[in-house]
Structures are given as structure tokens and as C-alpha cells.
């Protein structure tokens, strides 16, 4: 295998894992757009959704039937979390809300351990084995499948936000909640909807990554760090940025692991740290974000 095809091979694999990061980063960005906070529990919500899918499959349901059921459950779960956990502190300072999401992180993680134990579980691989050969570069069906699923989710979100009346209302609330309320929009319901959507998008990332990482309560911890790096790189207020950032982070991680000897497989988790620090130093608003201008 020549050096070029090997490089391409690594890039393809990076895009595969990057699609998963992009999906979770998109969930983070959605919440950030609606509530202005970073939801530290996003990964754990995705993890528990994945457990729901696992439970359904383990009880005999086919994967492709279990998936929509899981997404529906996640949507409802996300709305409930907004209503029960977030709404009461909505007008509290940012710090309070963040601490609440950290509390939610700890709670959901431990509940998963309590219900399903901390032992690692096999998650069924929904895509067929094997792959296709593109001029020496081997692309697994599973990578293609992940990319396809994430692309479908992005397109649906795009259509929802740009071409439906619900999307218009949601954009209004994200842009200016006070004005939206004055125009007669039920802001609370829209926020619930936003959290539900974010939980659904996050669930997709969990279900896609579970066959690779194996299912256990701490599965999403590492993915969350990569998603943070992706959202920071793309800009926390840009959904497009989250997707581009996710793909870039995935490729950077794979290349760094393969070509930089010092990093290797064990220190790859340093890559998101470096990316976050570098973005904050060079372009703090991220690639697609708008620089925040504060009016005192």
C-alpha cells in the first residue's frame, strides 16, 4: 500500500468516527442555541438512549424497528429533562444551570450502572460486514452507513428548521426569546422541543458508536470530549460548524494517532484538548461562529 493510499485510508476512517462526533456536537450546539448553556449531560443522555435500543434488541426486536422506537423515546426523554430539570433553573445564573447539567451527568451515568450494571455489553452492528474498494482505499459498509445516517439526520434538521413553520418558530425563540414570547409563541414548549430534538440527535451518535466502543455507562465520556472540541472548532452557535468541526476532529484524531509516534493510540484523547486550546487562542469564536459582541 502506497503512502498516499494509506493516508487516504486514515482520512476515510477519520471521517467515519468524525461523523459520530459531529452528531453529538450538533446536539450540543442545538442546546446552546436555545438555552445558551453547554449541556454536560448530553453524552450521558445519548448513552442511556443507546441502552434503550440495546434492551429492545435484546428482547427480540429487529434493529431497524428498535431504532425509531429509541429515537421517539429519546425525544420524549429530552423534553421531560427540559421540563423537570432545566425549566426550574432557567432564569438562574449560567453557573447554576451548568452545575445542574453536571449533576444530571452524574445521576444518569450512575442510574445506567444501577439498572444495567457496569459490565460491557455487545451492541449489534446494524451494517453488513465487508466494504468496497475504491482504488486501494477500503471503505467499510459500517463507515459508509454511519456517514449516511448522520447525513440523513442533518438534512432532516435542515428541512425542519428552514422549511417548516415549526422550524421558523424555533429559530425565532433561539434568536430572541423575549420577542418570540411577545409575538405569542409558547417559548416553554419550543424549548422542550429543542431539548427533545437534541436528545434525538445525540441518541443517533450513541447508537452509531456503540458497536465500535461497546456499550457501558462510561461509553460516551470520551466521545463527549471530542464533541466539545468539534463544537468549539466549528463555533458553538453554528450547526454547520458542528458538523464540519466533527469531521475535522475525527480526521485529526486518526491522523495524529497514526502518524505522530509520541501520541499513539493511548494519548489520542489529548488531541481534543490541543484543538480546544488552539481554537481559543487563535479564533475563539470558532470557524463558523460569530464573535460575541457584548453591550454593557
Amino acid at each position: 500500500m502506497s503512502a498516499v493510499t494509506e493516508l487516504l485510508q486514515q482520512v476515510v476512517e477519520g471521517v467515519g468516527s468524525g461523523a459520530v462526533y459531529a452528531s453529538l456536537a450538533l446536539a450540543l450546539v442545538l442546546i446552546h442555541r436555545f438555552t445558551g448553556i453547554v449541556n454536560f449531560a448530553q453524552g450521558e443522555l445519548a448513552m442511556i438512549s443507546t441502552y434503550v435500543a440495546w434492551q429492545l434488541v435484546a428482547s427480540g426486536m429487529s434493529f431497524w424497528l428498535a431504532l425509531p422506537v429509541t429515537l421517539a423515546v429519546s425525544f420524549a426523554g429530552g423534553m421531560l429533562v427540559e421540563r423537570i430539570v432545566i425549566r426550574p433553573v432557567q432564569n438562574a445564573p449560567e453557573l447554576t444551570m451548568v452545575i445542574v447539567t453536571v449533576g444530571l451527568f452524574i445521576f444518569v451515568n450512575a442510574m445506567a450502572g444501577l439498572i444495567w450494571s457496569f459490565t460491557v455489553k455487545d451492541f449489534p452492528q446494524p451494517f453488513p460486514d465487508g466494504g468496497i474498494d475504491l482504488g486501494g482505499v477500503r471503505v467499510d459498509w459500517s463507515s459508509l452507513g454511519i456517514i449516511a445516517v448522520v447525513a440523513v439526520v442533518m438534512s432532516l434538521l435542515y428541512v425542519l428548521f428552514q422549511h417548516t413553520s415549526v422550524g421558523l418558530v424555533m429559530r425565532a425563540v433561539a434568536g430572541n426569546p423575549a420577542s418570540a414570547r411577545l409575538s405569542g409563541i409558547r417559548v416553554g414548549r419550543v424549548l422542550m422541543l429543542g431539548w427533545g430534538l437534541a436528545a434525538t440527535v445525540g441518541a443517533v451518535s450513541g447508537v452509531l458508536v456503540a458497536p465500535v466502543l461497546f456499550l457501558e455507562p462510561n461509553m460516551m465520556g470520551g466521545v463527549l470530549i471530542y464533541a466539545f472540541a468539534a463544537a468549539t472548532l466549528g463555533g458553538f452557535d453554528s450547526p454547520v460548524g458542528a458538523v464540519v468541526g466533527g469531521l475535522l476532529v475525527g480526521v485529526a484524531e486518526t491522523l495524529a494517532g497514526a502518524y505522530v509516534d509520541v501520541i499513539g493510540a493511548d494519548l489520542k484523547v489529548g488531541v481534543p484538548l490541543v484543538i480546544i486550546l488552539a481554537v481559543l487562542l487563535v479564533r475563539p469564536q470558532g470557524l463558523f461562529g460569530r464573535a460575541a459582541v457584548e453591550r454593557a
Binding site: 433553573v89 452545575i99 445521576f107 450512575a110 450502572g113
Partner: peptide, 17 residues
């Protein structure tokens, strides 16, 4: 094993509320 996490998580949220 999971109980400390459940207690911590619930208490953090409860305290903030």
C-alpha cells in the same frame, strides 16, 4: 457501586433547586 453517583447527582440538582 452506582449508589454514590445516584446520591451525588440527585443532591447536586436538589441543592441547586
Amino acid at each position: 457501586d452506582a449508589a454514590p453517583g445516584v446520591v451525588f447527582g440527585l443532591l447536586i440538582i436538589a441543592v441547586m433547586f
